[in-house]
């Protein structure tokens, strides 16, 4: 098997959609005990990052925003990859890229410590715990791949890919 696209989507990341896609993700991975729980959890975390933080968004009832972005789930011989892509402010790019690099350069025990510190210090409420990316890497135990692509003077795309081993 070279690779097979299992799921591909571009649009607003409504929870109702994420939930249905998540249910499909569980079905795709039924045969793989290691991947099944991990992939679903990573799928939810990264999808909700798009929903919460994409700079391209829909307003719902003038009350809250739903981020617009892309997701792509692929199956390979021994692993899956899950990719999300969304618009960010170029002024946030250094912070985000540094964050990806810090996560990639940390081992599991350092990530666990980082996760604890981040969660304790997060203001909570609408900001959540801000540990979704750390959690994704802790679950997959693989480094993330990221790509940064400038769009114009103000915005860029950031895509994040996580590899999840089947067994």
């Amino acid at each position: 098997m070279k690779n097979k696209t299992l799921l591909s989507y571009r649009g607003p990341f409504y929870i109702e959609l994420i939930s249905v896609f998540g249910s499909n993700v569980r079905n795709y991975t039924n045969a793989y005990t290691n991947a099944r729980k991990k992939l679903f959890r990573i799928f939810i975390e990264l999808s909700q990052n798009v929903s919460n933080y994409s700079e391209d968004f829909h307003m719902v009832n003038n009350e809250y925003r739903i981020g617009v972005g892309e997701l792509n789930l692929k199956e390979f011989e021994n692993h899956f990859t899950f990719t999300t892509k969304n618009l960010i402010k170029r002024s946030d790019s250094t912070i985000l890229v540094n964050r990806c690099n810090l996560i990639n350069s940390s081992n599991i025990s350092e990530l666990r410590q980082l996760k604890r510190e981040q969660r304790l210090n997060s203001p909570g409420e609408k900001f959540g715990a801000r540990i979704g990316l750390i959690q994704a890497v802790m679950l997959s135990q693989n480094k993330i791949e990221y790509q940064y692509e400038e769009v114009d003077e103000r915005f860029a795309y950031l895509s994040i890919t996580v590899k999840i081993d089947k067994n």
């Binding site: 939810i44 909700q48 969660r119 997060s122 540990i131 979704g132 959690q135």
Partner: peptide, 13 residues
């Protein structure tokens, strides 16, 4: 059986 990281913050509270 599953809670996202935002929920973990609320459970921690």
């Amino acid at each position: 059986i599953y809670l996202n990281t935002s929920s973990t913050k609320c459970i921690l509270d």
